[in-house]
């Protein structure tokens, strides 16, 4: 599904390198977790995969469904099934959730040769999805993320994921800002959405989320690289020993190129 080959990226025009050679392989049907301390480059990695213009890929490649997507615009990547649940979802005043989602759904449907839904059909369709994350229907007519609490924004991201049915979901710190009940509900939603044909990459700080969504693989990111990969037990080890442990590990691995 997704393969990152020695991916390097820097802030466009500023020459600050943030991703320093990331290698990662994600197969259909899998759930991967990427953990790592603040500033290690996790969000940047997700944004680079989704095609954010702020970053320039300076080396390596992103292979998605067998092809390089480096030349694709963000909307084309979305059409191909890439979905990013943002760590900081953006407010879009004046545009309601329904307007955005109908436009998104139909654009993606059209690009894949699927049938578009008219407003009434679409309304039926999204109401089903609301239940999945137990979201109040009032949110449909509110402006996208505008004035939403941190937790509401995160829930809204997963609601959008449910509506758009992506094949690769990058969930950036979806757990932060959610209280314990919301975390359970949202996690259950993600578990239900995940199947044999899609893949999920969870980005998180804490082991807590992984009690609800059990990853097949865990990777630890540090200084713009994946420094260690393992099974779900790696998350526990990390929780126990802290990131300091990894930093010493990274040094042993020879940060110096």
């Amino acid at each position: 599904m997704l393969e990152l080959k020695n991916l390097h990226a820097e802030v466009e025009g500023e020459g600050i390198e943030i991703l320093k050679g990331v290698n990662l392989k994600v197969n259909k049907g899998e759930i991967h977790a990427i953990m790592g301390p603040n500033g290690s480059g996790k969000s940047t990695l997700a944004k680079v995969i989704a095609g954010h213009p702020e970053y320039e890929v300076t080396g390596g490649d992103i292979i998605y469904k067998g092809e390089s997507i480096l030349e694709m615009d963000p909307d084309e990547r979305a059409h191909a099934g890439v979905f990013l649940a943002f760590q900081y979802p953006v407010e879009v005043p004046g545009v309601t959730n329904t307007t955005l989602l109908r436009e998104s759904y139909n654009t993606i449907a059209a690009s894949r040769g699927r049938e578009e839904l008219d407003p009434l059909e679409f309304d039926d369709y999204i109401r089903e999805k609301l239940d999945l994350v137990e979201m109040n229907p009032d949110f449909l007519e509110r402006s996208v993320n505008t004035g939403f609490s941190g937790g509401e924004k995160k829930r809204n991201e997963i609601f959008q994921m449910a509506v758009l049915q992506p094949t690769l979901s990058l969930l950036d710190e979806t757990d932060s800002g959610l209280d314990i009940d919301a975390l359970r509900i949202v996690s259950e939603g993600i578990n239900k959405l995940h199947g044999e044909e899609d893949a999920v990459v969870l980005i998180t700080h804490y082991q807590r989320l992984l009690n609800y969504i059990v990853p097949d693989h865990v990777h630890v990111m540090l200084g713009g690289k994946i420094v260690k990969s393992g099974g779900k037990e790696l998350a526990f080890e990390l929780e126990e020993k802290g990131y300091d442990w990894l930093e010493s590990l990274a040094k042993v691995n020879g940060e110096a190129k």
């Binding site: 615009d73 909307d75 990547r77 979305a78 979802p89 436009e103």
Partner: peptide
Amino acid sequence: QIFYLQQRGISEDDAISL
């Protein structure tokens, strides 16, 4: 904002229009 909408499949021009 534009990136957010583009990530949802909407083209840049349509994003501005929205």
